[in-house]
């Protein structure tokens, strides 16, 4: 075996081991493997993977630090740079976030994800003109994510969030935003922020009944969202019974909530409760036809 191949194999081994551990949910063990590895011989992929694991386990400052080190070794990785910018944004380090996001955009324009976070940076600073410009560019270049892809997560897709952020900025600039919000809500009817902003706009225009109706939907969305979050927490902690209970509460708060239908069905499928999960999945496709591929794959996984 040539020394080059041997070196590559040696490098790949700890990464592979960490990947396997992470796939089993053993994040701390995976981190330990990578920490040892990057101490011995830091490489960009190992540092980037370590960063990912650190973020997953709430060590966000450390995650940013690892990713920053990875970028020193691989400065042209603009996607990592975007992530680093997003991490700094999350940490409230706006100057650092702007620096990384701008650099990422410089390396690979238009980079809508970076534009989205950059809009957030400007908005936080109260620089609404530049926030609007960035959010517009983000929306312009960010295609709608298929529902089937975003449904398994509690977070909304970036494309939806970008549209919502643009609406928020426009509202702060005193502009009319109802059309934009309605379009956003057609994609994600349970987006609490968009629903709230729409309700506020209607109330401000004196459309009290419509505004109150929207507020009522907002309230239901919000309560459902909270139960879904709790349910996910329980599910991740292995307490599936309480997770199911929370998902049911979410459905109670907001009947036909696509994520509540999906999360509950998924939990029940995993526990072998076939009949109820089937009816939930059937309902999900009725409510959200775009979820069909996801439902098919879940049914196949039984």
């Amino acid at each position: 075996m040539s020394p080059v191949i041997l070196a590559a194999l040696l490098l790949a081994q700890p990464l592979e081991e960490a990947r396997e551990l992470a796939a089993r949910g053993e994040f701390e063990a995976a981190k330990a493997v990578l920490l040892k590895e990057v101490e011995r011989s830091p490489t960009a992929p190992a540092l980037a993977f370590l960063s990912q694991l650190q973020v997953i386990t709430d060590a966000i400052p450390q995650g940013a630090q690892s990713l920053s080190r990875a970028l020193e070794l691989a400065p042209s990785q603009y996607r990592w740079r975007t992530t680093l910018g997003a991490l700094y944004y999350r940490l409230g380090k706006l100057d650092e976030a702007e620096r990384e996001l701008r650099r990422a955009i410089g390396e690979s324009p238009p980079l809508p994800v970076a534009r989205y976070y950059l809009a957030g940076v400007f908005k936080a600073r109260g620089d609404l003109a530049r926030a609007e410009e960035s959010a517009r560019l983000a929306v312009e270049h960010m295609p709608e994510e298929p529902v089937a892809e975003s449904l398994p997560r509690l977070d909304f897709s970036l494309s939806v969030n970008a549209r919502y952020m643009l609406a928020e900025i426009e509202a702060d600039l005193g502009r009319e935003v109802e059309d934009l919000l309605r379009r956003t809500l057609r994609v994600e009817p349970t987006h609490p922020g968009a629903r709230y902003l729409l309700a506020r706009s209607l109330l401000k225009r004196g459309m009290k009944e419509e505004g109150r109706n929207e507020l009522a939907i907002f309230d239901r969305s919000k309560r459902a969202h909270e139960h879904l979050q709790q349910g996910l927490n329980f599910s991740h902690a292995g307490n599936h019974e309480r997770a199911v209970a929370e998902y049911r509460l979410a459905l109670e708060a907001y009947p036909d909530h696509p994520r509540a239908l999906f999360f509950l069905a998924r939990e029940l499928v995993a526990r072998g409760f076939g009949e109820e999960s089937q009816s939930l999945l059937t309902r999900l496709v009725e409510v959200e036809p775009g979820a069909e591929p996801l439902v098919v794959s879940l049914r196949q996984s039984r």
Binding site: G92, D172, L203, K204
Partner: peptide, 29 residues
Amino acid sequence: RDYNTLFRNEGGLFFQDATVTSGLSLPTL
């Protein structure tokens, strides 16, 4: 990591979050 919020009274017990436009967002984050 959240801003202190200024709610501007617009009359009729209707308030607008005016934090960003009043310049109070960034310095309290």
